[in-house]
Design a protein around this nucleic acid. Structure first.
Lengths: 329, 329
DNA sequence: TGAAATTTTGCACGCGCTTTCAAAAAGTAC
DNA sequence: GTACTTTTTGAAAGCGCGTGCAAAATTTCA
């Protein structure tokens, strides 16, 4: 059992040399059509498929791409991953999934993936060090960051325009006459959290305003509820809570409901990302659309472009965002 | 650039043979502690890591496991995938992710993964044919199904007790005095849909009841809304809608809200899976808990058990379900 | 028909690594 | 010191495949 068929077996059965078998499976190779057909037929009969691991060893491409994803159970991450994986595999690549969970060391994971001779890596979670970026470059495996950028490191990245997104949101709130605004941030040390907060503060100061309160969650629905309650119970009169992502905004809305506070009449709540569930439920979210598909596509474009020309200039793509006006603000 | 360091380079630099380098990186191998340390140090300095592709070629294990997942953006799938990938990689395996999207041919994908010499495959989406099961067996790569079983095919599977789950739900509804019950199924031809429906019908007939209406969605929130509206607008007096999963149930609740129908007072709605978001929102779902983590763990257990003993008896694990009583029913 | 141009084919080497085997080194006992 | 056992080491043979090169087969042209 478990006796695997090799090119040698096929060659023997078809009465040709092993090289012929190899060529029969190589699209552009020099083989007579007749022989190729014959070899392919014999291979089929024997249940032979070229061993891609062995093929990868010849120095040719392995077709493997590492994808570092975070907590997949979060809507935005899942959504992005779905697009990424779909695009990847429809281009003939095989995604090697690396989970960057709590405390998971991204550097170590990429290092490990590199040992599998991946042709590239897409990092959509955790933070990458300059060191690992260098290792990737040394291995000839381009690195592409999603939703984070590593300044002046020569690493390509695609990221939505967080500053602009927050500006759109703040302008809307201010236009509605809201002035007493709080910020509910996400996990510390994440690029999104930092940039989005900066966006809020810049936009506010542009109106001569500042944040009245600052709380921090971890991008989850749960933390949105908890911090939302805390914010609401603090006794400070607020008329808007800007959240670092949709999940937390949904949590805050739940918190408001629990306290009998009307959204958006008494207080406005905004999200970020426009995940599918943001449009649902008791109070559809006013948020900023973070274009996932475009992001995934751009990431692949960057990856392929760099595979083709390793020395091209570093590119940081900022995908555009749009305001989605629903009821929560 | 992109000059990769091989074991030969390390051997030369360390003044030993290539075999020594290999042994230094092989835990149980016969090397003097001193030499191993030296080799490892030189390797570190040169930035060398064994090429796992080459290592896999020697007939040893590749550490690759194929994971066939469906639409990752759906809560249950994402949740399961997260657990699966986490467990897999914390056991030293590398998950190769294969997306089984609309119309995606699972057979073809597994076949392709087999060419990468995966050590096993976990299928949590799509349906597998007896044919591909045989191919896997021939390749010595165990197949484990999640949420679906392939009768008398010798394929291990882990699946929750759909029949029992629906029985729990039906009993509760009947106990509440509800008799006019409708079924909102999921995508046709899926194992879950079929078994869950069967569970509902069996449980109902046990009470001398039958379904009053049958609609079909595709397991999505959206289809839940649409079919929910259709069901509600049909003019038939219903007092409960049993949905094939949570997402659709949430959609139905939304539909009821749009029509101004009170849940659960006027109509009860039930889900299945108990995804995180089921506990949230305007009307927390009464549903059945489908234990994801246990499922993932069992799947890995089956996989490893079969790797160790390929001839062991086929095992179909039915993980237990529990009723989660919240407000929607 | 024969020579030249062209295509098709097989041999053999190499990709980077593991592992068997026998030789060398080190340790042990007398 | 010798004879023997045990550990450590290196040479070499693969693992399954791609491919450069030269030989063989085929085609083309005069």
């Amino acid at each position: 059992m478990s006796v695997r068929v090799t090119a040698d077996d096929v060659a023997r059965a078809a009465g040709v040399s092993r090289a012929m078998v190899s060529r029969a499976f190589t699209p552009g190779a020099s083989v007579s059509a007749k022989k190729r057909e014959h070899v392919l037929a014999v291979a089929q009969a024997l249940g032979y498929r070229p061993n891609l691991i062995a093929r990868g060893l010849t120095g040719r491409s392995t077709g493997l791409i590492a994808v570092v994803a975070g907590e997949i159970s979060r809507p935005y991450e899942a959504w992005l991953l779905e697009h990424l994986v779909f695009e990847l595999s429809s281009r003939g690549y095989q995604p090697l999934l690396l989970p960057a969970l709590r405390g998971g060391n991204v550097t170590e994971m990429i290092d490990h993936a590199l040992a599998y001779q991946v042709e590239g890596a897409i990092v959509a979670a955790g933070s990458v060090s300059r060191e690992i970026a260098d290792r990737c470059r040394a291995s000839g495996a381009p690195l592409v960051l999603i939703g984070r950028v590593l300044e002046s490191s020569g690493v390509d990245a695609v990221c939505c325009d967080n500053i602009k997104g927050m500006q759109l949101l703040v302008n809307r709130l201010v236009q509605q006459g809201r002035r007493r605004i709080a910020w509910l941030g996400g996990t510390e040390d994440t690029f999104s959290d930092q940039e989005r907060r900066r966006g809020v503060e810049q936009a506010l100061s542009h109106h001569g305003l500042a944040l009245l309160a600052v709380h921090r969650g971890d991008f989850s629905l749960h933390s949105g509820l908890n911090e939302g309650l805390a914010l609401l119970d603090a006794g400070q009169a607020l008329d808007a809570i800007i959240c670092a992502n949709d999940a937390m905004a949904l949590g805050v809305i739940e918190a408001a409901a629990q306290r009998g506070i009307q959204v958006p009449d008494e207080i406005a709540v905004t999200g970020f990302d426009d995940v599918p569930s943001a449009a649902w439920g008791r109070c559809p979210l006013t948020t900023v659309r973070n274009p996932v598909q475009e992001t995934a596509l751009e990431a692949l474009r960057l990856l392929e472009a760099r595979v083709q020309m390793p020395t091209r200039a570093t590119q940081i793509v900022r995908v555009g965002v749009t305001l989605v006006e629903r009821v929560s603000a």
